[in-house]
Write a protein that binds this DNA or RNA. Structure first.
Lengths: 244, 244
DNA sequence: CGGCAGTTTGATGTTACTCAATTTAAGTGG
DNA sequence: CCACTTAAATTGAGTAACATCAAACTGCCG
């Protein structure tokens, strides 16, 4: 069902770092007391952050390329009046953004959704590896393709679909990504999003998200509580949210 | 005002093709009688298409990378029930998509908005040039960055903004791009979009687009008729649609 | 036990959609 | 040049979807 296979750049890069020692990420700029930095000389840069903490800011430049190693995070774009659009949920192995390989500044911000661990690599090193190692090059290209594809789908969902369709689409989008990183039994997925996150991702109010999820629950499509999503009627969910 | 400088890949590549002769694009798959193909042995592939004709289809694979040379076109994603989301308007010099450099298949379709001229280059040649010519590599990276940035902004507009804000944002987004390709006198821009196109781009109905444009006209923000947009009050338009 | 963050529910308001009629503009062929 | 045709834009009335405001409820943690 998932046309685009999941890419785990972190594992690729961590492996790289294990093999070649002359690889030390530069220090990530101090963001807040929520982030705990750890330097491993001869390795890549590495840090942890608490749930809810901001771990990258729009327009901030950095010499590093970041990969989420553990936990959930999300990219978002914030407006002056407080509205924010969540652009993508990041799962372990995801680059903060594939274009950070070309560009030093972020065009969006990143926040930790759960407690996270993040790994930073010197951009120069990554780019050098791109030339040398075809596997890295392919991984990055795939990450670009994936991002573009996701953006296309999300744009279509936001522009053309109803509240039910958008929420169903978001869940369908996340399910295979979660499944690629966890053992799923009986269609029960770990799911740390608050309704506020869903709302900011699909462009609705949390109140309306609650109502729609209530409807889904009534119709026995799914159950959603305490960090877990249980899908009861996958085919019907897909009929609603699949964009075809 | 325009943070991201416009990239004119066509001119770059045409220049390349002029300099190096061993560069012949493969034939673009036959799409319809609306497209008139012309092969120039030793050069890149080249064709024209009538306004409204489809010039690329989702999931269609091609060995070529396409650049719009003249006219307007747009990328879009179509749903089974006929709804479509316009993802980006393409102006002369724009790649159909920067990721076609990595991937053979399109993740969306492309249609001509006006009469257009399109140039195709063999992907293998482009990739070879990427390694050899830093200018081409930079142009492609910038195109990727640009696409990502545009997608971010459009996602935010669709998810978070009102009808007025979205339409204003679209116009503000297009103005500098048009200005980069035309001499603009007295804030009067060539503007071939129908209200249906605006509607499909910002996720509204044509009827509502008409109403909002009517409001803008009443408030003397702009005039929009017969292929031309005249901006009467830029600052106010920006206040409405600038996403800050 | 109290406090807090998140969710649910109800009542009401607003935005944008739908349907349908009318107007405007642009050809087209006589 | 003038009917005739057709696509696009405008306008109005009624409606549906979603937002807003506010209150009540839940589970959790200190």
């Amino acid at each position: 069902m998932a046309k685009h296979s999941e890419i785990r750049l972190a594992s690729v890069c961590v492996t790289c770092a294990h093999r070649e020692t002359g690889f030390c990420g530069t220090l990530f700029g101090p963001t807040s007391e929520d982030t705990k930095t750890e330097r491993r000389p001869g390795w890549q840069h590495f840090f942890a952050a608490r749930a809810g903490s901001q771990i990258a800011v729009r327009n901030q430049a950095s010499e590093d390329v970041f990969v989420l190693c553990a936990g959930w995070a999300f990219r978002y774009f914030q407006l002056a009046d407080g509205r924010r659009q969540i652009l993508k949920f990041l799962l372990p192995g995801d680059l903060f953004s594939s274009i950070t390989i070309f560009e030093t500044a972020f065009s969006f911000s990143v926040k930790a959704l759960t407690e996270v661990q993040v790994s930073g690599f010197a951009r120069s090193e990554i780019r050098a590896k791109c030339v040398a190692a075809p596997a890295v090059q392919t991984a990055i290209a795939k990450s670009c393709i994936n991002d573009t594809h996701d953006a296309t789908e999300l744009l279509t969902a936001l522009g053309q679909c109803s509240a039910e369709e958008r929420i169903a689409h978001l869940l369908l989008h996340l399910m295979p990504r979660i499944a690629a990183r966890n053992v799923i039994r009986e269609q029960r997925y770990p799911f740390p999003l608050r309704q506020q996150h869903i709302a900011d991702a699909v462009g609705l109010t949390p109140v309306h998200v609650s109502r729609v999820l209530g409807l889904f629950r009534e119709r026995r499509l799914l159950e959603l509580s305490e960090g877990h999503l249980k899908v009861l009627n996958g085919p019907e969910l897909e009929r609603i949210g699949s964009l075809r």
